[in-house]
Nucleic acid binder design. Structure first.
Lengths: 221, 221
DNA sequence: ACCAACAATATTGTTAACAATTATGACAAC
DNA sequence: GTTGTCATAATTGTTAACAATATTGTTGGT
């Protein structure tokens, strides 16, 4: 049962950080857009120092760039960088799938199957956007099962940087159907508690996503 | 040719950040030690705002903890966390070894062999500290060959958090000899441009390090 | 001796002003 | 038209003071 929370006073810095983070993730702040401290402070109704600290954190996270005396801007992740991030994610999510196969209980497996079944419906309806959403849910659920703090954090950070590319790969012709099959292989391996198979399935899945991204780059988006 | 650099004015924030980072890495600031902004500001001869920003960055990096209105402290990484960090490193350095095997040229391979040969000498001399140093060099060289920005950054961050455990594993009886053999397997695989073998060798190497850490934990250090 | 209430202190959070640096625009020289 | 110089404006970097909060110490009662 949830107790009534005391006003939960959140500091201006944390407030600014989350709002900036969200704004970047939602695409309200575009790549290369400048982050002028005073403007943001007025927009968020906080002090400039808070915005300043928030920007420092986001820079450390790799989401914004900075140069001394020249300010900060939303960092534009290049296609080459995006591919690198996918390669790193492939091995990290592979590790997560490995752990998940070892730890999954009956309920977890049922949840995974439920999500995958919804993906199949969406595929039939040609609802690619919803497939993307369910895709995220499936990966998140696997991470949750794996119960691995370090990997979870790292993947979270990589995903944040990749946000601009998140809808690109599912649009490559034939990718949706293939993606569905790959996810099934992952879920099956986890259901059978076959850790190595789960890891391998996850890795080749993300490697295929990477290939799709490369293809979409070659075709000029 | 190097031009004369203009005084290279570094901002107080960046100055504070590096000095704090170094102090934590070198063990001058111990785990759980409080980071009082004013004290640090005086010690570094900078403004409190600079220290404050530096602390925010280090918190984002996971090196220090914070609570609102209660300040910051050097985060003490638990043994369980250290094991998680090693597991993540295993797959990331495995990826690096994979890439390195694909990209290594003759000079790179000669460099790797030179480092490994020095390790052998140190093993004969029972100089475990120097072995640790060469170990770091070997891994750094492989990362450099792999030429993978994303993986390099992630590993750098993981290593920073693990600093307190860096000398523990080599002290486990029999680890030094085994480590030497494992590194040889890695270097050989890279020399033969066998990417999969290199990745596998690196992964099992770091997994063995993890086992050694677990063992040293069981034995109460 | 133990505990509660309160005051004193230490520390962080926030604000505003000022200084230093970089970007912008006007104007003259060529 | 282009370029260079200069003044102006915009923006970041730094400082100091104040406010809010948490910690510590003291006092008085039992």
């Amino acid at each position: 049962m949830t107790t009534i929370l005391p006003p939960e006073k959140i500091s201006e810095t944390d407030e600014s950080y989350s709002r900036l983070h969200q704004a970047i993730m939602k695409g309200q702040l575009l790549p290369n857009e400048r982050l002028v401290e005073l403007d943001l402070a007025q927009k968020f109704d906080v002090g400039r120092a808070a915005v300043r600290a928030a920007i420092a954190r986001l820079a450390q996270e790799g989401l914004v760039g900075r140069e001394p005396n020249r300010g900060a801007w939303v960092r534009a992740i290049s296609e080459h960088e995006a591919i690198e991030l996918y390669e790193a994610r492939a091995v990290l999510e592979g590790l997560a799938a490995h752990k998940a196969a070892q730890l999954a209980n009956a309920q977890d497996i049922a949840d995974l199957r439920a999500i995958h079944s919804k993906m199949q419906s969406c595929f039939a309806d040609e609802d690619l956007l919803q497939i993307s959403e369910l895709n995220a849910q499936l990966h998140a659920k696997i991470l949750a099962i794996a119960n691995h703090q370090a990997v979870t954090q790292l993947i979270q950070r990589l995903k944040a940087q990749q946000v601009r590319f998140q809808y690109r790969t599912i649009l490559v012709p034939g990718r949706a159907r293939q993606s569905l099959e790959e996810h099934l292989a992952i879920v099956d391996a986890i259901a059978q508690h076959d850790a190595n198979a789960a890891e391998q399935a996850m890795r080749s899945h993300i490697m295929n996503v990477t290939q799709a991204l490369k293809k979409s780059i070659k075709n000029g988006f």
